[in-house]
Simulated scan of single mutants.
Amino acid sequence: MIRSFPMNNMENRFTLQFEVQQEMLLREAIALWGISKRTLTAIKFDGGEILVNGVERNVRHVVVARDIVTIIFPLEEASDGLAPQYGELTIVYEDEAFLVIDKPAYMSTIPSREHPDGSVANFVLGYFQQKGLPSTVHIVTRLDRDTSGLLCIAKNRHIHYLMSVAQQQGNVHRQYEAIVSGEAISQSIVEPIGRKETSIIEREVRQDGQFAHTDVEVIKYGRLNGCNVSHIRLTLHTGRTHQIRVHMAYVGHPLVGDGLYGGDQQVINRQVLHCVSLTFQHPLTKEVLSFRSELPQELSNLLK
């Protein structure tokens, strides 16, 4: 099959096109490309189009081999609570489907009550508007405010859905580097995580929590501010809130700078955690995309 994702020249709408290989109902052909029922409903009723060889058809139409199906997705609108802002983004990769950025520390991924603006979502929405892209912001991988590194954003609800499925299947791979207190060991931590009853923010290991799996690999040992520390690499197999921070605190090695979970804040007032690697298969081209980000100077200086 031939598939592409050009943007509609008139409205910059996201468009998916493919060639049918055998006779089937149009809705069956569409299902092969992972379009959810919710997205299909939006295409049908919110201004999208489904064309066969350039002619609009309904999903009961029978397509045959070599027919060209074009799906034009409806325009998307940002929520009223998300205001566009304009500033610099460190863009690592961009195509019609994705935006991968290198997020600095002290920037929230999405607005919150404590930080209502200045988030990644605010700046990405402003970037989309500057480029004339009628899309809202679909966060695929999220980072805590004080965690830096690679973050993936989808430009379309369909891509967001496909990536959510890939995450659930364990096909979005992320690695982090951190500095933790004490002499850690390489290990797998498989402990459930849930919200702490006395806090709306803090999480903890608890038996009624959600399954969580983190692999820990020691890179090297060192000293920081007169104390033993470990430079470690972490691989996430699940994506629970504060997962790395909770797991490392649970095994007695909280992240340096992580005051919420008992980390030493004498040399830095944010957790020393950076997403260094992000790898996934592009859901349209099937190409494996892999990105890397070096530790920011603020953190690498601690390792000297």
Rank of each mutant, 00 (worst) to 15 (best):
I201R: 07
P254M: 13
E94F: 10
H237C: 05
R66C: 00
Q187T: 13
Q168V: 07
V272H: 00
P296G: 13
A121I: 01
F123Y: 15
I153V: 15
M10F: 04
T136L: 02
N12D: 11
E19K: 08
L150F: 00
V205R: 00
E19D: 11
Q281V: 06
I200S: 14
I43Y: 06
N171R: 12
A97Y: 01
Q175T: 08
G170A: 11
V256G: 03
R13Y: 11
E183Y: 13
Q281P: 00
A83D: 13
A178H: 04
K155C: 09
I71E: 02
A42K: 12
S199L: 06
S119H: 06
I71G: 04
L255M: 15
L302F: 07
Y127I: 05
D258W: 10
V288H: 03
Y221G: 02
T90Y: 10
L273V: 14
E23W: 00
S4R: 14
S188W: 06
G226W: 03
N269D: 15
M163S: 06
S277D: 09
K220N: 14
E202P: 00
V59L: 15
R27W: 03
G259N: 08
V276R: 12
D67Y: 02
K304H: 02
Q207M: 14
Y86D: 01
H158N: 07
E294N: 12
L40E: 11
I268L: 06
Q129Y: 10
Y86T: 02
S199F: 09
S186V: 04
Q22M: 08
Y106I: 07
G182V: 06
V140G: 03
F291H: 05
F18G: 07
Q266V: 04
G182S: 02
F5C: 09
L284K: 01
H253P: 02
L125Y: 05
K103L: 10
H115V: 10
Q169R: 11
V276G: 05
S300K: 14
F5G: 05
L299V: 15
S36C: 12
